[in-house]
Simulated scan of single mutants.
Amino acid sequence: MEFSEVKVLIFEGYARQTLPMAKAFNKLGCEVTTLNHSKLDVGYTSKYPTKKIVKYSSSNDYVRTVNTVRELLKSGEYNLVVPMSDFSASLLSRNKDEFSNYAKIASNDWEIYDIAQDKLKTMEICMERGIPCPLTLISVESIEEVINSDLNFPIVVKPRIGYGAIGFKVANNEAELREYIVKNKINISFYVFQEYIPQSDVQFEAAMFVDNENEIKTSLVFSKNRWFPIEGGSSTFNITVDRKDIVESCSKLLKDIGWRGCADVDLIQDPRDGIAKIMEINPRVSGSVKICFEAGVDLAKQIIQREFDHPVTSYNKYKIGQRLRCSQTDLLWFIKSSDRLTSKPSWFSMKKTKDQTFSLADPLPWFSYSIQSLGRYRKEMKKRSD
């Protein structure tokens, strides 16, 4: 199939990764349509989509969003759907059997997707296969079982399914643990309890791509040098690095679970032993995917090749030292962090740095994304404080 024959529906248009993905599909000659919930979504304000649709698509109403996607796909106007967020990837995986009648769905079968989205299932596989990860309790039903386990305080408590450190809690002692669980009426079976790894070292992400023959075709690693919220959140400044140990760990994990296509793996380097340990899988295109394109890796091309059963281009090498900044949240990091003037690289350095949402060739998305970010800020911070 020629790239010009591919009609891509990108779902959802509010996600910042929509920008580089729409640009890349456009560059390949595809017809690109974005599904947006608002005219302020970057998928609507960008010049790269061929068509822009504003219809209901929100995690606030799952059924209504499913109906929106079903209506669009049954029109026959698209032959490939690519999710941008955890919500859209999950929705497409759950409904893949039906939606595959109308288009190629660039999300894994539900059985595989569920392993990747569930932090507890991911940790269980890591510990079974000897893949570096934090010590995690696999089967607990009560606070007493947590307290009497092999875990020492501080203990991390976080939802099995979630994003951006929402619900993340570090309990320093038994009293804090009991108070957090009781106060928030936590159902222990829906949470992960694991050892706390000090966040005094660097964190990493690995942007991975696996083809239909279970071969790794992309394994790009970047350091997360700053993140917001500071206590634990999404990266604000990244740098591509060469870490073969991380590639080995992430490759083994994804191949063992039978993953296909794009995945993003989060890791933290343990300052106690210097080992980078897997924390979770983000089962979709990375929010920082622009760094892949800047480093010479074309994930859009790989998605099309895999979905339409063509040999997938392998990217064994990429540019090291390429930097990516999310200016909106990196500014918040600067305001809140006590390391604002001592961070390395310097917050003021622009060497080899690209912005996630700004470019002179397509400037409007930066402004619309900034407006939306301001609107979401208080709500997002409340989620993390609850």
Rank of each mutant, 00 (worst) to 15 (best):
D386P: 11
K244A: 06
K255Q: 15
W366T: 08
F168K: 06
N238M: 09
L253T: 01
R243C: 09
M123A: 15
E231G: 10
I291R: 01
I53A: 07
D355H: 11
S234L: 12
D150C: 14
E179F: 14
Y369R: 10
M1K: 13
R306E: 08
T18M: 09
P154D: 08
A165Q: 11
K301H: 04
F222H: 10
D97Y: 10
L80S: 05
S234H: 07
L40G: 03
D211E: 14
E307Y: 01
S368Q: 11
E144M: 10
L19N: 00
P229E: 01
D245M: 09
T50N: 09
G274I: 05
D109N: 14
F11M: 14
I115S: 00
E145Y: 04
F11L: 15
I125Q: 02
L177H: 01
G29V: 04
K344E: 15
K47I: 15
E280F: 08
S139I: 11
N67M: 14
C126M: 07
S385W: 03
R340L: 04
V42R: 01
S288R: 02
L332S: 02
I320V: 15
K290N: 05
T313Y: 08
T45Y: 04
N148A: 08
K217A: 06
V156T: 05
G232Q: 06
N95D: 04
L332K: 06
R325H: 04
C250F: 03
A263T: 08
T218L: 11
K23V: 01
I268D: 00
I275G: 01
D256W: 04
K96L: 05
R284A: 00
R94C: 10
T357G: 05
A22I: 03
N36H: 09
K52P: 01
T122V: 15
D242K: 12
R378V: 09
Y78T: 01
V285I: 15
T18I: 09
Y44L: 05
P134C: 07
